[in-house]
């Protein structure tokens, strides 16, 4: 049985299985737009392997975290653009 951990996405509490990436946690909340591009377009994950930087979100107040390469940890605060 995988362990359940609690994180927050844009202030809303979410329960995910351990081993879930931040990107997966965000998508599980029904959020497709992870960030706004430099001209304000909505963007979400593309490559899934940490090279495209499209899935960047703010994790524990640190900007530009690659959500597809970051595993959820208990209490993590995840924020997407807007």
């Amino acid at each position: 049985m995988p362990e359940i951990i609690h994180v927050s996405v844009n202030g809303i509490a979410v329960a995910v299985e351990s081993g879930t990436t931040v990107a997966a946690a965000v998508l599980q909340c029904g959020i497709s737009s992870f960030r706004r591009s430099v001209t304000g377009e909505p963007r979400g994950p593309l490559c899934g392997m940490g090279i495209c930087f499209e899935c960047r979100v703010t994790v524990d107040r640190l900007a530009h975290a690659k959500s597809c390469q970051t595993l959820c940890t208990p209490g993590m605060e995840i924020t997407t653009d807007e």
Partner: peptide, 21 residues
């Protein structure tokens, strides 16, 4: 191609393997 939910083929597979339903 920049719309959210347009991903790589390997990209979407990797996302699903990491917990995307």
């Amino acid at each position: 191609w920049t719309l959210p939910n347009v991903m790589g083929a390997g990209g979407l597979e990797a996302m699903v393997k990491s917990g995307v339903p």
